Simulated scan of single mutants.
Amino acid sequence: MLQFLLALLLTLTTALANVEKTIFLAPTPSPFSSSSNITPDLSDLGLDLLSPENTIFRTKLNASFPSPANPEGTESWFLLEGLNPGQRYEVRVCWLATQPTSFTLSTYPLDAIIDDPSLLASISHFSSARVASVDGNNPKEIVPQVPNSHHAPSRPLRRTQSRDSDSVLFLRIHAAADYFTNEQRLMENVPPVIADVILDPFLGNVFPKSLVPTACWGLLVGVAAIGIARWVVKEFGRVILHGIGSKSAAGSTEKKGQ
Rank of each mutant, 00 (worst) to 15 (best):
A63R: 00
I56E: 05
R58A: 08
G46H: 10
A26V: 01
E53A: 15
S64R: 03
P31I: 03
A17P: 09
T28F: 09
L47W: 06
T11M: 12
S35A: 10
T11W: 12
I23E: 03
N18H: 05
S36T: 11
N62Q: 13
L50E: 01
F32N: 04
K21P: 13
I23W: 00
A15E: 06
T14V: 09
L61M: 03
L12G: 15
L49G: 13
D41A: 15
N18S: 06
V19T: 10
T13L: 07
N37Y: 06
G46Y: 12
D44W: 02
P52R: 06
P40L: 02
S35W: 12
I56F: 05
L45Y: 06
N62S: 13
T11K: 14
S34T: 14
P52C: 10
A26L: 03
N54T: 15
A17R: 05
V19N: 10
L42P: 01
E53V: 15
T59C: 05
N37S: 08
P31Y: 03
A26M: 02
L50Y: 01
T13G: 09
T28M: 08
P27A: 01
E20I: 02
P52K: 09
N37G: 11
T13S: 08
L12K: 14
P52F: 11
K21W: 13
D44L: 08
N54F: 13
A63I: 00
F32L: 05
L25D: 06
L25Y: 07
L12Q: 15
L45S: 02
L61A: 00
L50P: 02
T55Q: 09
F24M: 12
T55F: 05
F32P: 05
A15H: 07
A63V: 00
E20V: 08
D41Q: 15
S51V: 10
L42K: 10
T11Y: 13
I38W: 07
T22N: 04
T28D: 11
F24P: 14
P29C: 01
L12T: 11
S43Y: 15
D48E: 14
G46D: 10
T13W: 11
L42N: 01
L49F: 10
L61Y: 02
A15P: 13
D44K: 09
P52T: 04
D48T: 14
N18L: 05
P29W: 02
F24W: 09
